[in-house]
Structures are given as structure tokens and as C-alpha cells.
Design a protein around this nucleic acid. Structure first.
Lengths: 252, 252
DNA sequence: GATCATAGTCGTCTGCCTGACGATAAACAC
DNA sequence: GTGTTTATCGTCAGGCAGACGACTATGATC
């Protein structure tokens, strides 16, 4: 069968971003308020159309920079600077997921340290960090008592998939350091695990585990007392990306 | 900014399939010979355009059925019948990956028991099961001495990603049973692991591990001697999908 | 300054799991 | 019967994780 452009239907292709961070001991995601129909006024994940000459990862990195100012990080390089970790998550293409037209969305997952404040085109009221449980619960009420509408499109599913990916990936990789500033303490790393998994971990066993895993953490020599209590050693992420044996997520 | 159809470039969206099986102690993938340019005559992964009213998973299931006759399996249901396991793998959208036009391909991974023979539109010479190393090696020679050209498009990368997904996923899930017929022995399951991982496993420790993991295997009561030697107990896949603790892949 | 609260770090002990490997069992080929 | 093949059970030592005690070093409070 010869090449026939009419043989396939045209699609719009977008990238959507699940940007996760840990703020105040809670796993939070970046949400933007939609300024136009459909779902006008509702919260959604940031995203946008892929341009004609762009790769998917380029489009995701561009959107991430536009929304947060973060530079994307090459996934093959260990997390060391302030660049965020960025990886492809999954692709969503239900014919009815966008009422306007046939849109296939390639969702990406970004992990970032706690950031000052989000910006969506400079308008702070249209972007926020929200705890993922708040974004995922249907018809609940937010921290300010305002009723929470479900996320636009299928973004609740996308967010849930991204959160699950992050939860499982910090088990067997050093990705949890992507949530930390360039230098961090064992306690700060432990609080990342606790926030992402939603569990409490034994500080002594956690300390033994992470400091005993070769290549996970590299001491920088400095100490800090910013958490109160005894000063803690500062570390940065080591070269290891895969943890073997993995961190163990406690049973439910 | 209002809705403007001219604001986004049109894409073609396809699904490509990495169909894996275990034949003669080797991990094999389904390859089809391209009958038209580009890459005419070269081997490629099966796939095709997503139709206008189709979900991505529907399109993948349709292509799988067209190429192999396999029914796709709902991923939320444990593998029990002859349906293949089918899951989304990743999406590839380099602007230059198809010289004709802008194509975004949503690759899917299918795992199937050993099948009689592939069929590609009824023409057997245009479809085959090939060991994945043979398909991935560049410029080598196949089993029949015929020189092997690299796979078309970026399909070598897609195949490599699919193989890596399968290799890691049988560690912590019961997916290896998707390579087995409905009833199988512990030895057959072990040979699946050995073929996918490319290692030799201790039969005694493997037997202890898989029979000791709750929900992994359910004895059917029957026995078989089709492998020679002492008759082996027959099992089918249990309800468990996640293995905890996981199977451990031996070090390199 | 003594005391307390907080957080970090080092050890110990016990149980479980794994890898290595010996031994036995049940079929088939000759 | 003997040998071969595969299946299955057992044993043992080492490693790792969970539970938890003990000590250290800071800031806060009295």
C-alpha cells in the first residue's frame, strides 16, 4: 500500500507535566488554573502543544522551564545541580479525553527540590503547589475550606500515575535526591522518603542504610544545624543511580 | 488564547509492538519485513496507525491480534488464559524518526507464550520470531548466515527498551507466567527467567523461592513429564501480581 | 549555667532470606 | 539394572532489615 497522507487521521500532540516536590513534609504537585474552556477555572496539570520541530523531551523541558524556571536535567547524569529530574511517564490518548479534538498527551514526570513560588505566565494566582491527596480527592475541601473540583481532563489519572511512579522509583534508584537541594542531610533525605511514601521511617535504620549504600551519598565535609538539634553531616548525591539492594518501603 | 486549530501542528500517531516470547531457551521478538519505503525490505517491529475513534490500548490490541491472533489481556486481571499480557511501553517522537512526516509512536510491550508461527497478512516469509540479540546486533549475521541489517526507524531502541522493561518487570511481578502456557512446571518457569535474563539459576533455590511466595503459583494437581526426568507438578498463575520480596536477578 | 527538647549517630540482637550445595525421588533410554 | 535427566527436599552460613538501646551535640527554657 503506497504512502497516502489521507490514510491516517491527524492528531494534536501535547506534553503534560507532573511536577512533584516536597513541601512542609507533604508531597506536592504543581497545578495551574485553566483560563479558557474546556474546564475553564478548574485546576489542571501544566502542559502544552508539541511544536513541529521539537522532540517530546524537548517540549517537556520547555514547558517545565516556562512554568517553573527549572532547567531540565539529562536523565543519564546524576542529579547534582538545581536542574530537575525529568522523565517520560506515559501517554494518554482516549478519543474523548479532550472534547475539542483528538489529542494525545505524552505525560512527563519532573522531580524538583522545594522551590520559592510557582509562576504561570507571571500570574501567581493561577499556579500553586498543592498536596497530591488534595488534588486527587474528589469533591473534598482544600486547606482554605474552598471546595475542590476534580482536575481537568484525565489529569487525576495522570497525576496518580506520576505519584505511583515516583513512589516506586525512589525504592530502587537514588532519585529521592532530586527532591533535595544540592547539599542535604540524612534527615532531610529521610523526610523526603517519609513524605513521598506517607510513612514514618526509623531514623537509625535509615541512616545505616543510606550511608552504607556505596555511591548513594558523598559527604561534603560541612555540617548544618538548620533542622535544630545536633548538627548533621552534609551530603550530596553520589554517582550511583541504581540502589542494590533497594530501599524497602514498609508494608501498608 | 482562544481555540485555534492552526495553533498546533498535525501529527500522525502510531502504535508499535514489542512482542516477546521464549522459544528454544531464547528470548525472541516478533519482527516483520517492510514491504514499502522507507526501509523497504528491512525488518521492523509490527505496528500501524491509530484510528480516529480508537484508544491507544485498543489500537495496540488490534495490531497484536492482526499480527499474531492473540487476544490482548486486561492488565488488571492476572494472566490465566492464552491472552497475552499487553502494556504501554514508551512513546517515541523524534521529529526525524520517520522521513515522510511527523510521526509519534506509542510503543507497547506484549508478552506471549511460545506460539506456533507468526503471520503477517498471511505471508509467513514476512514475519518471524528472532532472538533479540540477533535483532539488536548491528551488522552481524543471522542464524542462516544472511547478513542482518539494523531494524528500521528507531525500532532497535524501542526493542531494547522493551527487553529491558521485561527483564526488570519479572523481578518484582508475576509477569514471567505470561510467557508460559496456562499450566506449567516450576522448571518451565525457571527456563523463562533464564532466557529473559540470560543467566543460569539454581533449580533448588528457584523452586524454594517460587513455591514459597504466596499467590505466585497455584498447583493444579496434575503432573507432567514433557521435559523428561521425574514428573513435575503442574501449576497455574496465582492471583498475586506483585512479588514481595522480589526475585533476585544475579549480578552480572 | 542546669535542664530539657530535639535531632543525629553508633551498636546490638534477632529473625528472615539467599546462595551454595548435598541428598533423594521418579521418570526414560539402553 | 545402570545411567541420565529432571524434580524436590534439606542443611548451613552469611547478609540484611526491623526493633530498639545508648550516646552526642546543638538550641531553648528556666
Amino acid at each position: 500500500m503506497p504512502y497516502d497522507p489521507s490514510a491516517f487521521p491527524p492528531f494534536a500532540v501535547t506534553v503534560d507535566l507532573v511536577v512533584l516536590t516536597v513541601r512542609r513534609h507533604a508531597l506536592c504537585a504543581l497545578a495551574v488554573r485553566r483560563g479558557e474552556p474546556p474546564f475553564q477555572g478548574r485546576w489542571a496539570l501544566p502542559g502544552g502543544f508539541v511544536r513541529a520541530d521539537e522532540d517530546l523531551s524537548q517540549a517537556a523541558a520547555r514547558e517545565l522551564a516556562e512554568e517553573t524556571g527549572l532547567r531540565a536535567h539529562d536523565p543519564s547524569v546524576p542529579v547534582q545541580d538545581n536542574g530537575a529530574h525529568l522523565e517520560q511517564l506515559a501517554t494518554y490518548g482516549d478519543p474523548k479525553r479532550d472534547p475539542r479534538m483528538r489529542v494525545v498527551s505524552v505525560a512527563h514526570l519532573a522531580l524538583a527540590p522545594d522551590l520559592p513560588a510557582p509562576r504561570a505566565g507571571g500570574d501567581a494566582s493561577n499556579a500553586r503547589w498543592a498536596p497530591v491527596e488534595e488534588l486527587l480527592e474528589q469533591g473534598g475541601y482544600g486547606r482554605d475550606g474552598e471546595p475542590v473540583a476534580p482536575l481537568a481532563f484525565d489529569h487525576a489519572q495522570v497525576l496518580a500515575d506520576g505519584v505511583e511512579r515516583a513512589r516506586s522509583k525512589i525504592e530502587y534508584s537514588s532519585l529521592a535526591t532530586a527532591f533535595c537541594p544540592p547539599e542535604f542531610t540524612v534527615g532531610e533525605l529521610r523526610r523526603v522518603y517519609e513524605a513521598v511514601w506517607g510513612v514514618a521511617l526509623d531514623p537509625r535504620n535509615f541512616h545505616r542504610k543510606v550511608t552504607g549504600t556505596p555511591g548513594f551519598l558523598v559527604p561534603t565535609g560541612g555540617t548544618t544545624t538548620r533542622q535544630g538539634g545536633r548538627p548533621a553531616q552534609l551530603f550530596r548525591a553520589g554517582g550511583a543511580t541504581l540502589l542494590n539492594p533497594p530501599m524497602l518501603r514498609p508494608e501498608v
